[in-house]
Nucleic acid binder design. Structure first.
Lengths: 159, 159
DNA sequence: AATTTGGTTCTGTAAATTATGAACTAAGGG
DNA sequence: CCCTTAGTTCATAATTTACAGAACCAAATT
């Protein structure tokens, strides 16, 4: 693993990796993990090996290992191998983006239960504050009803 | 400000404040800020003063001050005052939840631009990887098209 | 004019996060 | 059997975050 070659990136590509990286950081990823996402989005090689990633981003092997395993676990990347080689070739698993969207929405909808609990504990269930919470609950109900329909519409429209 | 009375909370209320707090932490808020959100959701007083919040959550004045100002800035809470009093009475600004939802979605859609940039830099615009990115772009376009309609539908259904 | 109220701002620091480097392992090749 | 490859794991170093505490300030009160 000595001296494998990093991918050559021009300045625009580097800047875009950072931009996409920051986006993913803001969505809860740690920096190195987010940069790997950025790299895989920008890279002209759709698949990259452990070393290529590590060298291109100047990440230590341990950071690379942890980051890749985390991305594998959360289903954001996947890999193939080629017969006779031990190397893994990592690539984005973009199908998972829509799954991720769905998960994000349903996590949001799960907040509904906390709100319901809050309502149950309220002394005054008719005050303005309570009514506001109830309206929020209704909004979340609305979303959980409409989201499947929306995604279905997308699937139908795809072709 | 010596010895103002904290709000009395039972165990269920305390637990729920933590639960709602953790939800907000997962959405990027820092712990103290998230607990304040929890408290305001659970509290039987729909409005609470600086001290009440600080004492009830055992937060220092600086933490309380920073947290409240952050929540004010991001539009998640608001306050009223009463004539003759300098105290501010803080409450949730729940109208902002749907605004927040909209913002979250549009931030997601803004990722579309990064993807477009990525496509522009690609050497091979027809490979599978590029096609996957294009499909994601189309999905985000679909969302940005459908979201306003969806929210409109909600507004109409409200009464 | 001194004190109290209702905060804000400024360090300092404990704790959590994030990444590094070195040691280790397991599989395959010579 | 030793070496290389392709990583993983562990201890620890370096940041970063989040909060407390003290000093401070402006408006109202005594």
């Amino acid at each position: 693993m000595i001296d494998s070659k990093p991918m050559l990136l021009n300045d625009k590509q580097k800047a875009l990796i950072e931009k996409i990286g920051i986006y993913h950081e803001n969505n809860g990823m740690q920096p190195a993990v987010a940069r790997i996402m950025g790299l895989l989005f920008v890279s002209d090689q759709p698949e990259m090996t452990f070393d290529e990633i590590s060298e291109t981003l100047n990440l230590s092997k341990s950071a690379t290992s942890n980051a890749l395993n985390l991305l594998l676990q959360t289903g954001q990347i996947e890999y193939t191998t080629f017969s006779g080689e031990r190397k893994r070739y990592f690539r984005l698993k973009l199908s998972n983006w829509r799954d991720g969207f769905t998960k994000k929405i349903s996590q949001m909808i799960s907040f509904r239960e906390s709100l319901q609990e809050a309502m149950a504990l309220k002394a005054d269930k008719d005050c303005q504050a309570s009514q506001n919470i109830n309206e929020l609950i209704e909004f979340l109900d609305f979303l959980s009803q409409e989201m499947p329909t929306l995604l279905e519409k997308w699937e139908n429209r795809k072709h």
